[in-house]
């Protein structure tokens, strides 16, 4: 307390405007968040420096954390972190948590941390505040992780009524996983681990819902049945730890040529065996692709070459590519709709 009382004073607001701005430009994102909480003016100052933050995710685990990616760092604002068994078992509403911990993590180490017990902002207000002070973080995910099942989903729905991106890992309770889907769908993008379901298979009633993007999130290695791919009418399907066989891939490609999955733009999936043109492209007419610049999400403005071009009955072209990483083989399909190619 004495240290606080004797803390040095510096009249920041009396500096010339460019100097005060220079001070803010050299602050860490954690310091900027604390500064932004002090007044409307401070909040506007932080907004005006346009800090280069990236995607924001609201992560439910045992506690709740708002996570913002900043290059190699993670800014984490944490609430409801349980310290006792009783706190762990309590059902959690999203009110105005008294305790807040803000930290910056780099390579899984905390490099700066600050906590206080006099928070006056509700969770929703925190999200709105962070969206305002870091305007580059308007891409928001709602993530349910392990042990998040204590959070009241009605309350979550009330506070975040229009969630565009939802990510669900196995929370530890299958019933709760189901409840998340029941309460929070529809969304534009869904990332879901197959082990959220007892049979480790994402139900077709979910896949059929016309999401723009479907990600099969990280979890134990699973198989994607061909029918599950065919029923999925999404633009992008990405499977991180789910696989199909080369033979099934061949069947999928043939069906796509005949008109299946008309919306698909990008598919990335693990294959359970080695990629060979002989099996994967059997019975399909193809040719080596010409160099093309892609206009799709993570491949935006990337020039691609070396794949195999196939053509659908209506004339739409797609490229099939294969690559190996960490001893695993991946197959990708990029469909060259007009908007997917840089002219």
């Amino acid at each position: 307390m004495a240290a606080t009382m004797n803390a040095p004073r510096f009249p920041l607001t009396e500096l010339p405007v460019p100097c005060a701005k220079n001070v803010l430009q050299t602050m860490s994102p954690l310091q900027l968040v604390v500064y932004s909480l002090l007044s409307k003016k401070c909040k506007n100052h932080v907004n005006s420096i346009n800090y280069p933050t990236e995607v924001m995710s609201i992560q439910f685990t045992q506690g709740l954390a708002i996570i913002i990616k900043i290059k190699q760092d993670i800014l984490r604002v944490g609430f409801y972190e349980p310290h006792t068994q009783e706190e762990m078992e309590n059902k959690k509403q999203l009110g105005t948590p008294k305790n807040v911990t803000i930290a910056i993590g780099r390579n899984e180490t905390v490099v700066e941390e600050c906590r206080w017990t006099t928070n006056q902002l509700g969770v929703k207000e925190w999200v709105e505040h962070l969206k305002f002070v870091f305007p580059n973080s308007n891409d928001i995910w709602l993530n349910f992780m392990q042990r998040s099942f204590r959070f009241d989903l009605d309350c979550v729905k009330k506070i975040f009524p229009n969630i565009p991106k939802l990510c669900i890992y196995h929370t530890g309770r299958f019933k709760y996983n189901q409840l998340i889907l029941q309460k929070l769908l529809p969304t534009e993008v869904i990332s879901i681990a197959p082990n959220c379901f007892r049979d480790s298979r994402i139900p077709q009633r979910i896949l059929i819902q016309n999401f723009a993007n479907v990600h099969y999130a990280q979890g134990p290695l699973t198989r994607i049945p061909l029918n599950d791919l065919l029923i999925n009418n999404s633009k992008q399907i990405m499977a991180i730890n789910s696989q199909i066989s080369s033979k099934e891939f061949n069947k999928f490609l043939k069906l796509w040529i005949r008109g299946a999955n008309p919306r698909i733009e990008f598919l990335s999936v693990l294959i359970s065996d080695e990629f060979t043109e002989y099996i994967s492209m059997k019975g399909i007419t193809y040719q080596k692709m010409q160099e093309r610049k892609c206009n799709l999400g993570c491949l935006k403005n990337v020039t691609l070459s070396g794949g195999l071009d196939v053509c659908r009955m209506d004339g739409t072209k797609a490229t099939v590519g294969a690559f190996r990483e960490d001893n695993r083989s991946w197959l990708i399909i990029i469909v060259w709709h007009d908007h997917c190619i840089v002219p």
């Binding site: 009249p11 002090l38 206080w116």
Partner: peptide
């Protein structure tokens, strides 16, 4: 001056910068 904000809570920072 920015380093003065290190580890400060909002209440402490208000006092440091006289905001």
């Amino acid at each position: 001056v920015a380093n003065m904000a290190q580890g400060k809570t909002p209440a402490q920072l208000r006092r440091v910068y006289l905001l």
